[in-house]
Structure formats: C-alpha cells, structure tokens
Design a protein around this nucleic acid. Structure first.
Lengths: 173, 173
DNA sequence: ATTTGCTTTCTGTAACTACTGAAAGTTCAC
DNA sequence: GTGAACTTTCAGTAGTTACAGAAAGCAAAT
C-alpha cells in the first residue's frame, strides 16, 4: 500500500469511528454502525474475517452485527464462485439507505407506538372528568401527529430519488 | 379519587411506560422520556417530589432528568407565589415538541456529523487512486444528503403549525 | 448567624448492553 | 463415513449507563 492509500485509510478510519458515534446517539449499536460505515466505503465486498480484522472485533460480534445489518436491509450477502465463504456488500446509495432505515424504524418502533396511543385514546374516549378529557385530547393530538408523520414517511420512502428531489424543491419554493 | 380517575391513572401509567420504551429506542434516557410523558399529561405543574413519587425514582435521578428536559426546551420551570419550590410544566403542543426536538438533535448530532463528513471529503479531495475517488464520492453523497436533510429540518421547524399542514397537503397532492 | 426548605452534585452500586472466545452446528468434499 | 471450511449460538465477562442515597450548597426567613 503506497503513501496515498495510507492516508486514505486514516480518513476512512475517522469516518468509521464517527459513524459509530452517530449511530450510538440514534439508538443503534455502535459496532453495527461501524461495520456499516466500513462496508459503505469498501471498494470490494468483505468477508467476516476481514471485518473482524479491520475493526478488531471478535467473530461472534462481527457475525451478529452483520446479520443484523442484513435484517435491516442495509447489507447484502454475496457469494463468490468456487468459494464457500459469505461476503458482504453494503447498499451505497444514500437515498436507498434512508428509505430502508425509515421503513424499518417505522415497522419496529413507530407502528407499536401508534398502537399504544390508539389504545390510550380509546380507553379514555368515554371518560367525562376534565382530567380525562384533557388526557384524551392529548392522546388524539399525539396520535394524529405520529400517524401523519408515519404516512409521510411511507409516502416519501416509495418515491424514487428523482421525484423526491423535485418534491423537495417544491417545499423550498 | 373516584373510580373513573383510578382507571384514568392506569391508562396514563401505560402511556408513561410506553413513552419511556420509545424514548430508549431513539437514544433518549428512559427516565427522561417517562418524566416527559408524565408532565405532558399532567393537569397541573408538578414538583420534583411529585415526579419522584409518581415514578418511584430518587431525587437525584428526578432532578438530573428534569434539568435535561429543560435544556432540551421541552419543559419549563414555573414558580408559584409564596413558594420557594420549583415546579415543572411540559410543552404540550405536539408540533412545538417536534420542532424543539428537531432543533436540538440537529445542533447536537447532525451538525457535528456534518463536520466529520466535510473533513473526510476535503481530506480526500486531491487523491487520485480509484479507491480514494470512490471514497470521496461517497462522502460527497452523504454530505449532500445530510446537509439537505438538515436544511429541510430547519425550514420545517420554523414553520408555524398551520403552514406546515398546508405544505403537507401539497406533498400528498 | 442559625435554621429551614429546597436544589445540586457526587460516589458507589446496580442493571443493562455489548462483546469475546469457544463450542456446537452446518455443509460440502473426499 | 471423516475432515475441512465456514456459520451460528451461547455462556461468561467486561464495559457502560443509569440510579439511589447522601452530602454539600444555597438562599430566604427568623
């Protein structure tokens, strides 16, 4: 590896580290975010052993997080002819990454939250005390807002990149 | 407390619990989210002791998280005439809550992330190897996307509730 | 200047999450 | 079948975060 690529690797490491920090702040396992960053900036597909080596993590850890990334739809498994090993490749298109994260978080977190809000709303629908009315109203507000946001997310996530951009322009007009 | 309010309290507890779970998934301290839920659904302002009592948490914990909520702009300190104690009151308007969370997360997390992306982009701007070009290009994509999202957030967050709704309608058209 | 009522900070601990290293499982080759 | 290459699971441990309880700090009232 020549001089130039040594410094590239340094920058890349910085990126991987920071992507990990960011992930952690958003409730995502730091290692998972780091593997994602590593794969996003990898010129070729990587094997589990290569990921282990790069990040200096154990096989178990690498394996679990790689499979989680696959479950999130952010990483694909790739096999090479004549090799039994699995290789991993990340989705690199930012818009596609965004869509998949949005879809997955909606499914895992937003939808269950909406369930709770609906339940709390319904349970208090018939209550007559001022406190209960206020509580009910607050639940209505929250549910409307969250379900609205959720629908927006759906809508945006089904848009292809180009259309999303046009729409964005409209918003700024 | 009569029969009806007993069941209201049960529903409210469910809400508080679930809001806590949701917060945790989004990288927010569970207790902080619970206090927020409690205050959002409180008919009156609450004192530290009342929060402690409701959630069965220690004074230190209640205090720290209340002050964090104030720092996030989600809770206000209120004083009553003739009382030395501080009371707390949550912002209840969902749109306002959203705006404040958006603004704060941008400041705390998005802006630093953008800094890193810019740095990685700049550091690799002059490199000529194909790997470096690809890395640089990926950084450009990411930075464009994040900074675009960030600006959108700014824009949306400055809109009053009504205008935001109109805009949303436009998107669905 | 002491007491009282309240807020803030701090230290040790408990609870939780993430991780390692190894064992067990699978699949294919021979 | 046995072995080799690789994947998956798991139990114990390390590391991290959140928390209780107590001590310290502060300001007003007396």
């Amino acid at each position: 590896m020549d001089e130039k690529n040594v410094s590239l690797e340094k920058v890349r490491e910085e990126f991987v580290t920071q992507w990990g920090v960011m992930g952690a702040q958003w409730g995502i396992n730091r290692t998972m975010a780091q593997i994602h960053a590593l794969l996003m900036t990898a010129p070729e597909v990587l094997s589990t052993d290569e990921v282990m080596g790069s990040l200096e993590i154990s096989r178990g850890n690498a394996h679990t997080n790689l499979k989680d990334l696959v479950a999130w739809g952010l990483v694909r498994i790739v096999t090479k002819k004549g090799e039994r090993k699995e290789f991993f490749e990340a989705e690199k298109d930012v818009w596609e990454i965004f869509r998949r994260v949005a879809r997955e978080r909606k499914r895992r977190e937003i939808d269950p939250a909406l369930e709770t809000l609906r339940h709390c709303k319904e349970q208090t629908a018939e209550m007559k005390t001022p406190e209960a009315r206020a509580f009910h109203e607050q639940m209505v507000q929250l549910e409307d807002f969250v379900s609205f946001g959720s629908k927006m997310g759906d809508r945006v996530a089904t848009l292809p990149h180009g259309k999303a951009m046009k729409l964005a322009m409209k918003i700024f007009s």
